[in-house]
Amino acid sequence: MKPPIYAFAALLLAAASAQAATAMDPAALRRTVDAFLQVQSAGLPGKVTVTVGNIDTRMTLADCPAPEAFLMPGSKAWGKTTVGVRCAAPSRWTVYIQANVSVLGNYIAAATPLPQGQAITETQLVTMQGDLTTLPASIATDKAQVVGRSSNVSISAGTPLRLDTLRSQPVVLNGQMVKLVTAGSGFRITAEGKAIANAAEGQVVQVRTQGGRSVSGIARAGGQVEVAF
Rank of each mutant, 00 (worst) to 15 (best):
A66N: 14
P115Q: 05
P136F: 10
Q98R: 12
A144H: 12
Q116L: 03
V153Q: 13
Y107V: 00
S91R: 14
L135F: 08
S154A: 15
A157G: 11
Q124F: 04
V103N: 02
V153T: 15
T159R: 11
S102W: 03
T81F: 06
Q169P: 07
R149S: 12
W93F: 09
A89G: 06
A77E: 02
S75C: 07
D63I: 04
A111R: 03
A89W: 14
G74C: 04
G158T: 04
T134E: 15
A62W: 05
T159N: 10
G74T: 01
P65S: 05
I97Q: 00
P65A: 05
C87S: 13
D63E: 10
G79S: 09
V146T: 01
Q98T: 10
K76S: 15
A109N: 03
W93I: 03
R162N: 15
M128T: 13
C64W: 00
S138W: 06
A89F: 12
A157S: 14
A62T: 09
P160K: 00
I108W: 03
A137P: 11
L71S: 04
A111M: 02
A99K: 02
K143A: 14
A119M: 12
V146H: 01
T82R: 15
A99V: 04
P115D: 06
A69E: 01
I97H: 00
A109P: 00
I108F: 03
S151T: 11
L125K: 05
N152A: 14
G130W: 06
Q129A: 11
P136L: 09
A62V: 10
L135H: 05
Q98C: 01
S168Q: 13
A109L: 04
L135P: 04
S156N: 14
W78C: 08
L132Q: 05
W78P: 06
V101Y: 00
V146F: 00
S168W: 07
L161N: 01
K76D: 13
S151H: 06
P65V: 03
R92D: 11
T159P: 06
P136V: 09
L166I: 03
S91H: 13
S75P: 03
P115L: 04
D164W: 08
Q169L: 11
P136D: 12
Q145P: 07
L166M: 08
A144V: 10
V103H: 03
T165W: 12
T141F: 10
V147Q: 08
A88Q: 15
T81K: 06
I120Q: 07
G117R: 09
I120D: 07
D131F: 06
L132A: 11
P170R: 07
T134C: 09
P65H: 01
T165V: 11
I97S: 02
A77T: 00
T82A: 15
A77F: 02
V95C: 07
S91P: 00
C64Y: 00
L132C: 10
S168T: 10
K143R: 15
N100M: 08
L135K: 07
L104Q: 14
D63V: 04
L135S: 07
L161H: 00
A77N: 01
P136G: 11
